[in-house]
Amino acid sequence: MAQYSTFYCGDSLFGLDIGYVQEINRTSGLTGVPLAANCVRGVMNLRGEVVTMLDLRTLLGLPSDPNSAAKRNLILKCDGDIFGVCVDGVADILTIESDSITAPPSNLSINESKLIKGVYQSDTVLIMLIDPREILNASLASIRTAA
């Protein structure tokens, strides 16, 4: 049983183990980093620390939506690395029993299937659960291929 912080990216609802979420804040003052990988949106000032912000849409292989302002940032702490993920909006915190998580459907795209470790469905919602370590791995891998 674990608590998940859920958020929107496009129309879909995603969840992250709350243990990895250091904080959630509003997008402010993103500085672009030229020549960085596509998934890097930029760097921002988090109380004196310079934190790299990643674009979850790119990592998931979703089309970038010019209308999405990506209003919230999830600051994640994962194996000593602090990085941020821009999302469209934040939803609830849910407590999910581990046995109610099912394997992701096999028709996910390659990008999605790498990040999504399981799916939780209740009567009303369908939440794709993301493994933050995979966000880190996938984003770093995309840097290596870019280089």
């Binding site: 020549l35 310079v50 990085f83 840097i143 280089a147």
Partner: peptide
């Protein structure tokens, strides 16, 4: 001078960041 994260650290033309 502030250090940069893993994703942008090795871009070559950057020596770090500042606020």
């Amino acid at each position: 001078v502030k250090p940069l994260g893993k994703h942008v650290r090795d871009l070559g033309y950057l020596a770090g960041a500042t606020i």
